[in-house]
Design a protein around this nucleic acid. Structure first.
Lengths: 144, 144
DNA sequence: ATAATACCGGACAATATTGTCCATAATAAT
DNA sequence: ATTATTATGGACAATATTGTCCGGTATTAT
C-alpha cells in the first residue's frame, strides 16, 4: 500500500508532532529510535518532508525537527503520503491501464474506485495531531 | 496497490477466461497482445499461475492456456492476488509494524483495517468470469 | 574563537521488482 | 519421421526502492 519511505514518514510525523506538543524538537536520532527505523534513511525522508514545508528543521545543538503550532491540526495523512509517494496510492487504474475512467473502464474500475476513494477520504480526514494524541495517551504505538 | 505482475496476471486471467468461454485456448502471445503487456514477463506470470493450478497449460500447436469449465466461476480476484503477491496486499500493518493488532495497534490501525477488510472482501467476492462477462459485452477493457 | 551538535545533499551500495533471452521439452499437423 | 508451434525454466539485465556513508554547513554553548 504505502512505500517503506512513506510508512517511516508517517510514523516520524506522529512522533515529531507529539514531541512538538511537549515543547521540544526531535533529532533524526530521536526519531529513528522512537519509531525503530534506519537512521540514515529516516534522515532522507525527514529532509524531503522539510523541503515540502511539512516540518521545520533547525541545525545545531538543540536543533532538530518540529511541526509548527500554526500547521498543527491541518496536516493530514494525505499531505504526507502525497509528499512522499505522490498520488499513485489512490490515483490511477487498479489494473495499471494508462487510461481508465467511467467511459473506458477496466474490469474492476467501479469496485476498485470505491475502495480507493474511501482510502483517500480516510487519508484526507485524518490529521497527524489526532494520531499523536493516541500515541500520547498510550492507546497506540509507533514500534513493536 | 497490486504489483505490476499482479496487474498483468489479473488482466491475463480475464482474457483467458473469456477465450475459454469462446472455446479456445490463449497462447502467451495472444494474451500479451490482448492486454498489451511485455510478452516474456507475461509468460513468467502465466507459468506461475499454471503452477498454482489456477489455469491449465497445454504445449504444442493449438496449445496455450485455458481455465477449466469446472473452476470457472470459483476463481476470485483473491485467488489470483494471493498466488502472485501473497497476502501482503490486505494483510499486515499499514505503517509496517511487525506486530500490530487490537491490543497493540499502530496509530492508524482501526481506520486502515476497515479499508483493508473492504478490499479483501471485494477481492474475495469478485470472480473472474463476472469480469470476463463485462469484457465480452464490451462494457470493460483490458488495454487502452 | 572554538568545539560540539545537527541538518544538508551527493555519491554509493544492497535488494526487490520488472523485464529479456535462450535452450529445452512436449505436442500437433503434415 | 519431420517440422512447426508452444509452454518451461534458468540465467541474465534494467530499473526502482531501500538503505548507507561522508564531507560540508549552520548553529549553539562554552
Amino acid at each position: 500500500m504505502f512505500s517503506k519511505a512513506c510508512e517511516y514518514g508517517i510514523r516520524a510525523m506522529i512522533y515529531i508532532s507529539d514531541q512538538s506538543t511537549r515543547g521540544g524538537r526531535a533529532s533524526v536520532r530521536d526519531v529513528a529510535r522512537a519509531i525503530d527505523s534506519p537512521e540514515a534513511f529516516t534522515a532522507k525522508i525527514l529532509q524531503s518532508l522539510s523541503n515540502s514545508d511539512i516540518i521545520e528543521s533547525k541545525k545545531g545543538p538543540s536543533g532538530g525537527y518540529e511541526v509548527s503550532e500554526a500547521q498543527k491540526g491541518f496536516i493530514s495523512l494525505l499531505h504526507i503520503v502525497e509528499a512522499i509517494d505522490g498520488d499513485k496510492t489512490y490515483h490511477g487504474c487498479g489494473l495499471g491501464l494508462a487510461a481508465c475512467d467511467e467511459d473506458h473502464p477496466c474490469p474492476i474500475h467501479h469496485k476498485y474506485k470505491m475502495i480507493r476513494d474511501e482510502l483517500k477520504s480516510m487519508l484526507a480526514t485524518t490529521t497527524i495531531d489526532q494520531l499523536a494524541k493516541d500515541l500520547h495517551v498510550g492507546s497506540a504505538f509507533l514500534k513493536v
